[in-house]
Design a protein around this nucleic acid. Structure first.
Lengths: 119, 119
DNA sequence: TCCATACTTCAATAATCCTAGAATTATTGG
DNA sequence: CCAATAATTCTAGGATTATTGAAGTATGGA
């Protein structure tokens, strides 16, 4: 995942409505949700929903497909996973002991949260 | 970690200079880096660095301490870990099978990236 | 105390983002 | 083909953010 996409993903997630949309789409699963349903659930206008959906799509965090009259949006789990991975790698950078854990399949900074090594 | 802080953390990380600062501070470790050093390394003015550092501090991703004439900034590993955790929980929401993995101590969406279940 | 260093704050400008309404496009049913 | 539904695009505004240079604050040494 290149920096350009990381930046635009963070930008996409830094807006209340967009974060809520992503959460709803993650819960909705691969089936996704129609633009209209999203607008209604978020309590925003179709125009506004469309604006934010476009923004999210531009960042690669969600994708769309047409289904009859509706346009269905769904979360890109791959993009979300890549973003988490980026964050974990950056978070662990320069901390070989913790990075070692990651390579063993454990989690990284989450471990730090449990109260060891760092902090 | 409440939504307010999540949003401001993502906003903080969505700017090139700020993302670079966080990466540098993570690598620098608990010792941190002086504001002047950061400005120089990022190739921005002291004023501009100060602006971005303040923004990062406001989001809780970094913290500062004065040391003689310098002000030293360092990454908050806890905040970074919380952010990753938030992302993982949101990413796994509604996917019990994967969430199960998390509870067993494996990682979450990272697993999805290895090519199973989702996608 | 005076000066230099290390930063931050202020003020103004430029740039980007968000919202809202009107107009436009695509699809389906009568 | 026409009307209705489902969305998007366009345009204009107001609101935030980012950048810059000048001025201000804190610290330590001569």
């Amino acid at each position: 995942m290149d920096e350009r996409q990381v930046l635009s993903s963070f930008a996409a997630l830094s807006q209340e409505t967009r974060l809520a949309i992503v959460r709803a789409l993650v819960v909705a699963g691969p089936e996704g949700l129609a633009a209209g349903v999203i607008a209604e659930r978020m309590g925003v206008s179709a125009t506004n929903a469309s604006f934010h959906l476009k923004e999210l799509e531009r960042s690669g965090l969600i994708s769309q497909r047409r289904e009859s009259r509706s346009i269905i949006y769904s979360a890109s789990y791959e993009a979300l996973a890549d973003l988490i991975k980026f964050l974990m790698e950056d978070c662990c950078a320069g901390h070989p002991a913790i990075r070692g854990n990651v390579e063993r399949g454990d989690d990284c900074c989450i471990a730090a949260d449990k109260g060891d090594v760092i902090a």
